[in-house]
Design a protein around this nucleic acid. Structure first.
Lengths: 336, 336
DNA sequence: TTGTACGCGTTATCAA
DNA sequence: TTGATAACGCGTACAA
């Protein structure tokens, strides 16, 4: 047995007694082929187990059907949920997903994009990191479309999908004020991602405008453990904040656990907590976290429809989409 | 500007003033090319932004470098963690990951495998569902290697990686008995996956052998919500079980939350709970769940090394790997 | 070491 | 509607 005994259109043509072109046409939607010929080809193909070789097809059509998803920390609840939504939408659009895991460095994103170019990806969607401008140009030059999700970048060319983090965050400040809190805090990671900083900014500004005392603390990476550390830092201050807005739900979960189990605080009785992302765990009985849901389906929808659209449409459209997060009231903030 | 203005080896050759094969050789490790020529080619390639076209290369080499990951419910904590481990290992091995999301039907897996064939994937790793035997044969016939993870199947050809679910589960029965529990229960989903059923079997048998009273309940899909429902069913019985082994951590989280917040039970004081998978949340302060860790790195390692190995090795090796889960003692079971 | 010529499996073009 | 032929970009046997 040969190493890769794959069956080609040639074999099918031979068996069906037609030309290679007839086989190709049979598998090309909208091509003109006689019903009877088509039938014969289909039969032969089935018997032989023939499948169109998309590598070769992509070579000819200059369109691989591959869309590259570039992401770090893909196993995180928020990221994996977004990934799922994108994957489903892409599959429904007839695209195939190539997944590239990066570390959190920008160089790593560059490497991923080069890989995407090598595989002639029709487009790449970037969920983490920010590519160098030269790499962006390289992608565009190679006919690859780019989508940046929550990456605050102003280069022309890529489609930019952003959440209105700042405006949303300001609403939490108002909610805290209505709950009767005077001293509030923002718990952030030290990742300093554009969206994280926008949330911090939106909250701080609004809180100050309302005359509240605002404390900001940043620590580590955006995960559960960092949330616990942030709780230690904020809850041991001389004036303990009465309400804390965490930059993400994962931070909020760690924060709440520390607040309850290590400081014995009741939520929302003694402490109000809010988060962002609406990960699945935010709805769990142990947390019941008031948070912002990212409309993941809308994000995926916007990304996929843009990268599947005709070139002329793409060139004309303003490549920027702003999406409104949705406030989900649960039980971690008084009032509501 | 043309639609896909990608730069080819021909362009590089022209600019460097060499033949096209010289370019090809420069990018083929281990090919003989003069250092000076190589230098010229590299320079021209860099200036033009040339990248080898892996579609064309795959066509020639009959090896695409693509490995297909077939999975349903990829956004689940356990699945996404396994996915991450596999992706990282594959990338380190120089492979590129194609992700295909399926629903839970076996037919859907078949469709995914056909897609893998169309893209000439070197291998497919199946995490969910079970392909029809004829499709398995089709893959093998097309020179595609197959890895089945936790899919209890006896077809020859694919590599089968399985956890020793049954033996592991029996150890929990012993732990419950040592904790002084007489009435125990197994909380399962109704998915009836081989691994889930093996856990049920292993636990039930061992518990009965120890002279314990065993109740088994099954409901819905393997998720948090099902865990809550299972808690309602089991905790409202005339004789309330003193210990419950949940088939997965996700079920256990839902179970614990319902037990505490709706039935007011203390864990492990009034109720012992154990889970399986060691998802991240199992270690969170709110759960501190005693559970089994799946050695994900070992699983990924085994899968990747096998599918990267030489054909002759593959043909000889017994394509089956049994991996031992590791018991993680936390605080949801008395004793330990 | 280098260049020429061919084949990989497909689609697009064109004449029949 | 059909079949022959030319690309697509690359690797490689072969000859130089």
């Amino acid at each position: 047995m040969a190493s890769k005994p794959s069956v080609s259109a040639h074999d099918v043509a031979e068996r069906a007694g037609v030309s290679r072109s007839a086989v190709s046409r049979t598998f090309t939607p909208g091509a003109s082929v006689a019903p009877e010929t088509r039938e014969r080809v289909l039969k032969a193909a089935d018997e032989l187990g023939y499948h169109v070789n998309h590598l070769a097809r992509g070579l000819m059509r200059r369109e691989s059907g591959i869309v590259c998803l570039i992401v770090s920390d893909a196993a995180t609840p928020y990221r994996s949920a977004l990934l799922r939504e994108l994957t489903i939408h892409l599959q429904n659009a007839g695209k195939v997903v190539m997944l590239i895991n990066t570390d959190r460095s920008d160089d790593s994103v560059g490497q991923a994009l080069r890989q995407a170019i090598r595989y002639q990806a029709d487009a790449s969607i970037i969920l983490s990191g920010l590519p160098d401008k030269s790499i962006t140009q390289l992608c565009l030059k190679n006919g690859q479309r780019l989508v940046l999700i929550n990456r605050d970048d102003d280069q022309p060319g890529p489609l930019k999908i952003n959440l209105n983090d700042e405006e949303a965050s300001s609403r939490i400040a108002l909610a805290f004020e209505r709950a009767g809190c005077r001293h509030v805090a923002f718990a952030n990671s030290d990742a300093r991602t554009p969206s994280l900083m926008a949330r911090e900014r939106g909250f701080s500004k609004a809180a100050e405008a309302l005359g509240l005392e605002v404390t900001v603390e940043r620590y580590g990476w955006t995960g559960y453990e960092a949330g616990k550390v942030l709780a230690h830092r904020l809850l041991t201050r001389k004036i303990r904040p009465e309400a804390v807005f965490c930059a993400t739900d994962l931070l909020a979960c760690g924060f709440m656990d520390a607040a309850r189990h290590e400081f014995g605080l009741s939520i929302p009785g003694q402490l109000c907590v809010a988060g962002f992302d609406d990960i699945e765990q935010a709805g769990w009985e142990s947390y019941q976290l008031t948070t912002f849901a990212q409309p993941l389906a809308s994000i995926a929808e916007a990304a996929v429809s843009w990268l599947c659209s005709a070139p002329e449409e793409t060139a004309m459209s303003v490549p920027s989409v702003l999406i409104e997060p949705q406030l989900i009231w649960r039980k971690s903030v008084r009032g509501g």
